[in-house]
Structure formats: C-alpha cells, structure tokens
C-alpha cells in the first residue's frame, strides 16, 4: 500500500505539473482528490490494514493530499494568469479610432461673456436683477436726469411706442426702479436688451445688450468705483489688465468717467485691434447724480453710490475677435459651434 501511495504521488505530481489547461487541471483534481478519486480509494482500503499501521498510513495519505493540493493551486494560478494574459492580448483595440460623441449644443457667445460678468459681480455680493424692455419714458429718461427735450434723448435715437412708453435705450432705468424700492444698501447688476434706432451694419444693431451696475451705500466713493471696475477688468480680461479712467459726461452720474482697459490682444503695446493706442474703451460710469438719488427718494446727504454700464456685444466682439456684429443675430450654427 505504501508503495502504491508513493507511486500515485509521483504520477499525480508529474501529471499536474505538465497540465496546460484549466479544464484538464480540474479533471485531475477530481481524478485524484474527488470522492471517487484514487486517493480516496486508497483511504478506503485502509480498513485492510492493521490497527497499528492505520494511523501512520492515514497520515501519509494526508501528506500526499496536501502536496497535491498545493501543486494543484500553484498550477491553477499559473494557468489562470496565462489565460488572462492571452485574453488581454486578443482584446487590443485601436485607440485612435474616432470617438462616439454626444453632439452637444453651444451657448451663444454673448451669454458666455454675460455669465462671466455675472459670476464676477455675484462673487462681489451683487444681485442680478431684471427690468422691462418696453419702459416708461419716465424711467428711461426723466428719472435719470434727462428731462423732456434734453438733447441726449435725440442722441440715443429712441424707439417710441407712444409719448409715455419707449423701448428702453439703456439698462439704466433698472437703477431707478431698484432705488425707488428703497431697500438699501444696493449692489446690483442688471443685464438686458436695449434698443436704439441704428441701421443694421457690421458695428451697429437696433437691438443689443447692456449690463448696468449700481452700488448705493453710505460711504461708497469714486475710489471704490475705480477699485471695483479694476477688479472686474482683471477678472474678465486677465490679471495683468490695467484700467484707465477718463473724465466724461453722463446726465445721471457726476463725476463721470469712461473706462479703457489695456488692449487684451497686444497687452498695451498698440495693435490693429486697439488702433495703435494700447487701450480699448469698454464702459461708462460715475457717481450717481444727487438729483437722480433725490428723484428715487434717496437722501443724497446720507447715501451716495456709483453706477456703470457695459456694452455686452462690444466685449463679445472684442474678446472673440468677431469682425461683424450681424453674426451674433444670424444664428448660423457654423458660427455658434465655435464657442
């Protein structure tokens, strides 16, 4: 019996060692270690042995079993790895084949810029507010210190619905509407459509967008206006951007200024975009005129503030180097998909 056990061990180990597939390996496991396997059969034959021999022989059988199991596991591990390697080899793909893309839509360049502007000001504690586009003459002009027959009314080429109602020529009427509510302090921006009777061409549109800004508090200064817009310009056009304030005149602010930023194409050296000056005009602003505050029921002795107005299209055109404003309203997808 001992000899048979030894022979079995040698034969089994050799067969397991040379097995090349997992299936055969499994068959061998069953053939030797299974319930009807050879080792089990030997164990069953133990009953013919003497009582002294039995434990010894039992121990030997167990040793053989253990040896076979270790071997089986070892070979199984080796074969599994080989099989996985083979599988991975056959699954190689051409990673340079075209992607399967979802054909995403694109936001209008005007709105991409607007959202940037909104994020900048919301981050500084401003509320984004809205106002009507078809507006009372009062809010569009009178409440902004532009009385009847003021030349600015002609300059702005207003579309009229009737004597009292106009298409707003600026987003500034939202200022008056917000101030009138009397909830102070105010920090707001009001983006929206405005209208002026300019014929459509490469640089004009009768319908375009402005972003109005207004801050009213007890100690808001011209220096704060400068700091705020400098911050805005840096965030929108890049950290290296500088701003220049030039005195100007608007009926609803005093003092007033126009603001230039260093040309974002040449950085201020002078190029075709900035017509060689190194500067690009982007907005008008100023300290809210005390009479405007008074008309909205705010005491100019107690409160002061600043306002600014940005032409959205102007920034969009400059930022993306779009050479014709009409493209913004044509909605050709070959244009829109570039943004």
């Amino acid at each position: 019996m001992e000899n048979r056990l030894k022979a079995l061990r040698e034969e089994a180990l050799s067969k397991i060692e040379t097995t090349s597939t997992l299936d055969v390996l499994n068959e061998l496991r069953v053939a030797y270690l299974g319930k009807k396997g050879e080792l089990t059969a030997l164990l069953k034959g133990m009953k013919d042995l003497s009582a002294e021999e039995r434990p010894k022989f039992g121990q030997m059988v167990n040793e053989v079993r253990e040896a076979l199991e270790v071997k089986l596991d070892e070979v199984k591990d080796k074969l599994s790895k080989a099989a996985l390697e083979l599988q991975l080899k056959t699954e190689v793909i051409d990673v340079t084949l075209p992607a399967k893309k979802k054909n995403l839509g694109h936001r209008h360049p005007n709105n991409i810029v607007l959202e940037e502007v909104e994020n900048i000001f919301v981050g500084m504690g401003y509320e984004v507010v809205d106002g009507p586009e078809v507006e009372y003459d009062y809010y569009n002009f009178e409440a902004l210190n532009i009385p009847a027959n003021h030349p600015a009314k002609d300059e702005q080429d207003t579309f009229y619905i009737n004597n009292e109602i106009v298409l707003r020529t600026q987003t500034s009427p939202v200022q008056a509407r917000v101030m009138e509510k009397g909830k102070l302090p105010i920090r707001m921006i009001a983006p929206g459509r405005v209208y002026r009777s300019d014929e459509v061409d490469a640089t004009h549109s009768p319908c375009f967008h402005q972003i109005e800004g207004l801050v009213i508090d007890k100690n808001v200064t011209f220096a704060d206006l400068k700091g705020t817009l400098a911050e805005f310009a840096k965030k929108l056009f890049g950290e290296q951007t500088k701003v220049k304030f030039r005195p100007h005149h608007f009926p609803f602010t005093e003092p007033s200024a126009e603001v230039d930023v260093t040309c974002f194409k040449c950085g201020g050296k002078g190029c075709r975009m900035c017509k060689g000056s190194g500067w690009i005009e982007i907005l008008g602003c100023g300290m809210v005129h005390p009479h405007v505050l008074e008309m909205s029921g705010i005491d100019p002795e107690e409160y002061q503030g600043f306002a600014f107005g940005v032409g959205l299209e102007r920034i969009t055109l400059l930022k993306y180097e779009i050479d014709d404003m009409r493209l913004l309203y044509e909605n050709d997808v070959r244009f829109l998909k570039q943004f």
Partner: peptide, 11 residues
C-alpha cells in the same frame, strides 16, 4: 484717485 473696494454692510 486710489482704487479701493466698497466697505460697509455686506450683501
């Protein structure tokens, strides 16, 4: 004129 940011009540 210096460039500062508005102080006062936070919004």
């Amino acid at each position: 004129i210096p460039a500062t940011l508005p102080t006062g009540e936070a919004t």
